[in-house]
Design a protein around this nucleic acid. Sequence first.
DNA 1: ACACCTATGTATAAACC
DNA 2: TGGTTTATACATAGGTG
Lengths: 78, 78
Amino acid sequence: MEPLNPRIKPVRMGRRKIVIQRIDNVTSRQITFSKRRNGLLKKARELAILCDAEVGMIIFSSTGRLNEFASTWLDSTS
Amino acid sequence: MEPLNPRIKPVRMGRRKIVIQRIDNVTSRQITFSKRRNGLLKKARELAILCDAEVGMIIFSSTGRLNEFASTWLDSTS
DNA sequence: ACACCTATGTATAAACC
DNA sequence: TGGTTTATACATAGGTG
């Protein structure tokens, strides 16, 4: 490792372990919500395709915004 | 690597990359369904707790079996 | 609020029990 | 059918732009 020199940028911290409990900081909570919602929807899609299952999901964010996903039979676009 | 000797157990394959498409083999599909359904439900719970969100999910397996999850307001046990 | 980055934790495909 | 193990792929926290 290089010696700590204040003129040199600090190294990235990388990921930290978290505990599953409500995130108090509003900004962090919204960021985490956005990321994890996308991950959850992706996994729902994968489950539906891989396993030929029907999956429906509705998510209300803490601000009241609605997100939904349906693999097939509730999908009005099909 | 060791040479292939039939008297020696083959090494574990570990995980392989998969393509997201319907799993044809019924047994594999059911095993994958069981594992991924559990993973999906866990992530739904985490999202609800971490981000103070409301999440509802229903899953029908290809054999018609129903699984459901609701973080709060549809939960008759609360 | 969104996209990208990367170190690190988590999910999971195969195999075996 | 469900649990365990292990190697590897994937998700993601924290940071930056």
